[in-house]
C-alpha cells in the first residue's frame, strides 16, 4: 500500500498578522478539504492573535524554483549594482534625495 494513499492532502498556510501587512508563509498542515484547512490553520497557527486573515493553498499546486538552479536564476542580479540608489555619488548638498 502507498504510505500516503489515505493521508489528507498537504496545505501551505499563509497568515496576515494585521491589516496592511503581507500574508506570510508560516507552515503547513493536512486537511481533507479547503474549509477544513482554513479552520485548522486558524487553530494551529493563530492561537495567540497572530492573524487577521489566512490563506491556505494545496502544496501540490505551488510551483517552486529548484535550489539547483539558484545560481542561474539569481546570479544575473549580482553585477547590476546600478539598480541600487547607493551606486550614485551625488554632492552632499543634494545627497538626501
Amino acid at each position: 500500500m502507498n504510505a500516503t494513499a489515505n493521508e489528507w492532502p498537504l496545505w501551505e498556510v499563509f497568515v496576515r498578522t494585521k491589516a496592511g501587512l503581507d500574508h506570510k508563509h508560516c507552515g503547513s498542515l493536512h486537511a481533507a478539504d479547503p474549509k477544513m484547512a482554513l479552520q485548522m490553520a486558524r487553530d494551529v497557527y493563530t492561537r495567540r492573535q497572530e492573524g487577521s486573515s489566512v490563506w491556505v493553498v494545496r502544496s501540490d499546486q505551488i510551483v517552486a524554483s529548484d535550489p539547483g538552479d539558484k545560481d542561474m536564476l539569481f546570479d544575473p542580479a549580482d553585477d547590476k549594482v546600478y539598480r541600487h540608489p547607493t551606486f550614485y555619488k551625488l554632492p552632499d548638498a543634494v545627497d538626501h534625495m
Partner: peptide
Amino acid sequence: AKIQDEGGHGLYLYAAAETLGTSRDQ
C-alpha cells in the same frame, strides 16, 4: 490551552519532518 499548544507543537514538528521525505502516516 496548554494541551492544545502541545498538539500544535507536535503538528509543527511533524510538518518539519515531512519535508525530509517521510509521510505523516509512516
